[in-house]
């Protein structure tokens, strides 16, 4: 059995829910020793699950070796293996799970299944020192406002249709933008938005605590095609409306729960405009604003490794034969006993 608090105990975390294959080594004290990654870049269109899974299988060996090299440890030094068990794209999840099961069996160490959404929250807390935040988790696949209550991360609000990141991605593709390695669509839109001047009116859809982005996406694409403004103007307006919606709902949760912190996490957390808007509401409510660092914002192995450690320390692990992936695993279905003890 690994020593729970030892700096010499390490968790290997494997992340493969969508287009990223990540592997990381994190020590049981919460030090990220390595965080290797390789992103699947589709030639056109969005993520094709089977193609992304093929990519993950191809790069797995390289990424795992890189994680071990950078951490300067040997496979035998690994105490537990954690993997993202869901939610996500089935073929991608299964590729990561297969690698994790094989390694855990070969090394004869415990296997821990981690909920991807919990991973984003926990790594944000670890990196920023937040203890009990209202979290806005925004990425290509998820848009969730959450806060911890009675053993679980409760969902206070979420998207009723597409995710924030997905909205930006589809918009960018529809208006002919291209993403580059190191500059995903969100970053490209953000860059253009900074040059926008004219506000083009777009639908603002908040339903209580929930959000809807599909109408906004359609209207933004139409605004560009009907030349209601330049591409820069439409990017600017799209961000203003979408981020105002996110900020309003987060503020609502903050007013309701009266938590001491606001945490921004997930891939879209990299957006400076969104950061500045949330910072305003955190200040107004006397809450500390925390944002996950850029290197831990997008999907990564470190968040899986760290959450795996937290779960394992609470006595949670999964036998290989029961380690099925769960593509629709909801955040609030995860019992998180480690949070209250923190």
């Amino acid at each position: 059995m690994p020593d729970h608090n030892s700096a010499n105990s390490y968790c290997l975390g494997i992340e493969s829910t969508a287009d990223d294959f990540g592997a990381a080594i994190v020590s049981f004290e919460g030090k990220v020793l390595s965080n290797a990654n390789d992103t699947y870049m589709p030639k056109e269109g969005g993520i094709h699950p089977r193609e992304a899974a093929r990519h993950h299988a191809e790069v797995a060996e390289k990424v795992l070796a890189e994680a071990l090299d950078k951490a300067e440890i040997k496979p035998r030094d690994i105490s537990i293996v954690a993997f993202s068990q869901g939610p996500g794209l089935g073929p991608c999840l299964r590729t990561g799970a297969t690698a994790a099961r094989a390694l855990a069996s070969y090394l004869d160490v415990p296997l821990v299944g981690v909920n991807h959404c919990v991973g984003h929250i926990e790594i944000g807390k670890l990196a920023t020192g937040a203890r009990d935040p209202v979290t806005l988790y925004v990425s290509g696949g998820n848009t969730i406002v959450s806060a911890f209550e009675a053993g679980r991360y409760r969902i206070f609000g979420e998207t009723l249709d597409i995710a924030m990141g997905n909205c930006l991605d589809v918009f960018a593709r529809a208006v002919g933008l291209r993403q580059r390695r190191g500059a995903p669509f969100g970053a490209v839109v953000e860059e253009l938005a900074r040059k926008g001047k004219k506000f083009v009116s777009l639908p603002y859809t908040v339903k209580g605590m929930d959000l809807s982005f599909s109408g906004l996406l359609t209207a933004a694409v139409q605004a560009f095609r009907s030349k209601k403004g330049s591409l820069e103007d439409v990017c600017f307006s799209l961000q203003e409306v979408a981020f105002s919606m996110l900020t309003e709902v987060t503020e609502r949760a903050l007013a309701h729960t009266e938590k001491p912190e606001v945490l921004l996490t997930g891939g879209v957390a990299a957006n400076k405009k969104l950061q500045s808007m949330l910072e305003v509401i955190a200040d107004e409510h006397g809450a500390r604003f925390c944002v996950v660092p850029l290197r831990l914002a997008a999907d990564n192995g470190a968040m899986i490794a760290w959450t795996g450690i937290l779960a394992y320390k609470s006595g949670m692990s999964v036998p290989v034969e029961k380690s099925f992936v769960n593509v629709k695993w909801r955040l609030e279905d995860v019992y998180a006993p480690w949070v209250e003890g923190q």
């Binding site: 998820n142 629709k328 695993w329």
Partner: peptide, 9 residues
């Protein structure tokens, strides 16, 4: 319709 509900599929 909410994302990732266990019994959706």
């Amino acid at each position: 319709r909410g994302r990732y509900v266990a019994d959706r599929g």
